[in-house]
Computed example of a mutant assay.
Amino acid sequence: MSLTQPQQKRFKALAAEIEGIDVDVYERFERDPLEPIIGLGKPNLRVGFFGRDPGREEVRFQEPFIGAGGQLVRKALYERLYGEKMPDFEASRAVGEHFFWINTVPYKPVGNKAWSMKVKRHFHDLMNEVLISCWEGESLITLGREAFLWFGIGRSKEERDRLEAFWKSDERFESSIEVTLEDERGEARTFRLYPLPHPSPLNQTWYARFPELLKNRLEQLDVHLDNLAI
């Protein structure tokens, strides 16, 4: 599944209005800094991943979740599906085809710092539309606090408080929570979020535990080769 032409144009227009895109990295790899990096996938894939934003390797390959943190995710997916260690980088790219990929802002920020709330709001309506219209699944593994709390943007204080309380609970990486999103066209979908910590090597608190936490989530969601599509 790819973006529609109008969606592609809207992303480029929105990106042209902000500062903070890491233009130097895009230039190094001869990539267009206004081109959104969204993985998407087949619309009928059962499980999706919702992350923060792309990094250097994502710019280089024009694929999301392909850098150090993404490789940690893909290794776990490969082992879950095939029962053996992931052999190489190309295998990591191929295993991604079985899942839907999306993030809060589809552009690499300078210094890999999380985008401001202002920028996340700037893209929110369009990312919301993409999530609702381009995918038929409902189970989303969110990676990190920024990705999880994105689902509270533009919502009521009660809903934001509900998500904040869930994130603060000790069971957040074992339990799940339902959220209903509505886009500007009035189309609504309900998703179930399965939060995990951010898989960055810089996340010292959770990095070592991440593979086991993801393995447990994949078991929870009954992920296997015969159960990848709706």
Rank of each mutant, 00 (worst) to 15 (best):
E182I: 12
N216F: 01
P43M: 05
E27A: 10
L3E: 00
F65Y: 11
W150G: 01
I37Y: 05
G152P: 01
F151G: 04
Q62N: 04
Q204E: 06
M1K: 07
L143A: 11
L81S: 12
E57Y: 08
D183G: 05
E63T: 09
P6D: 06
V119W: 03
G83Q: 09
R145P: 01
I21N: 02
K113C: 08
M127I: 14
H124P: 02
G96S: 05
D22V: 01
M117I: 14
V179C: 02
R172F: 11
V47R: 00
E174F: 14
V223W: 04
I177V: 09
D183T: 05
E30M: 08
H124A: 10
D88F: 06
E187V: 12
S2P: 02
E219V: 15
L143M: 15
K118H: 11
P54Y: 07
K113T: 15
M117P: 07
G144W: 10
L196T: 11
A91L: 07
G137N: 02
Y78R: 15
Q62P: 09
H198W: 08
W206Q: 03
K120T: 14
A16W: 10
W101C: 00
F191V: 07
I18N: 07
S176P: 00
S200M: 06
K42D: 09
M117A: 15
K168C: 04
E19N: 15
L77D: 00
K118F: 02
E164W: 13
F49P: 05
L213V: 03
Q8W: 12
S139M: 09
E79G: 05
F99L: 13
A91G: 06
V130T: 03
R31Y: 06
R80I: 10
L3S: 10
N44L: 08
N227Y: 09
G20T: 01
